[in-house]
Nucleic acid binder design. Structure first.
Length: 224
DNA sequence: GCGACAG
DNA sequence: ATCTTGTCGC
């Protein structure tokens, strides 16, 4: 269970949402050195239904040592904000906070399906969730949003920095030999290198980290 | 004007 | 994200 979550007040305009991100971005903390390795990670994801605003959000807590599932939570609701590139958090965060509240297990880190710092205003969905919960958070996106990077080497674990405006925001990480890289960036209370390490350590034999895959499956199944 | 554009 | 079967490639 996550306590002390401040009530989310969603803006209703693009300008308002961007202003909120400016404020949240200022509250993101990125430590210079390593932080204690997370023991329990919550993978998060949201699924949508084609012809309605019904959505399902899932949170799956996984033990990083055994890769065993500790707890799962799924909630359903209505989408209240449209998808706008750069403003994904306003569409998904309200539901994800509800899923997190449904958990009874304390978690050490949030692993989100989307960007963290690798965002136009350095405030991707992982930053929103990290700041609002106070927990360390990492963003792991399947596609690129911002930042330039060299093509990572072809093998599992190969990575190259994501750079934008002179800042290293994250990395393009090859999580399996020959697969397309994922885009990893810190959301809160963790550094770029360690964020990549955490994601790689949770990928098993798949491109995406296990907790996120499980959250995807569960949220999708909930809409059936 | 022409791309790019997390989910 | 979602609608969807078979099929091309390793």
């Amino acid at each position: 269970m996550i306590s002390g979550v401040e009530r989310w007040r969603g803006p209703d305009t693009v300008a308002g949402a961007e202003a909120v991100q400016g404020e949240l971005a200022a509250r993101v903390e990125i430590p210079a050195g390593p932080v204690p390795p997370p023991r329990r990670v919550a993978g998060l994801d949201v699924s949508y239904r084609k012809d309605s605003d019904l959505v399902a959000a899932a949170a799956v807590v996984v033990d990083t040592r055994t890769l065993e599932v500790v707890e799962e939570a799924v909630v359903e609701g209505a989408a209240t904000f449209p998808y706008v590139p750069g403003l994904l958090a306003f569409r998904e965060v309200p539901m994800l906070l509800r899923a997190l509240d449904a958990l009874t297990t304390p978690v050490d880190l949030l692993l989100c399906d989307g960007q963290g710092l690798a965002h136009p205003r350095r405030c991707g969905v992982a930053c929103h969730l990290g700041v609002l919960t106070g927990l360390p958070a990492v963003g792991c996106a399947k596609n690129h949003l911002v930042g330039e990077h060299d093509e990572p080497g072809p093998r599992r674990g190969d990575r190259s920095a994501l750079v934008d405006g002179g800042d290293v925001l994250g990395c393009a990480l090859r999580t399996q030999d020959g697969v397309r890289p994922v885009y990893v960036s810190p959301g809160h209370r963790i550094g770029v290198d360690q964020a990549g390490d955490v994601v790689l350590g949770l990928c098993g034999t798949f491109r995406l980290p296990d907790p996120v895959r499980r959250a995807d499956h569960i949220s999708r199944r909930a809409l059936t």
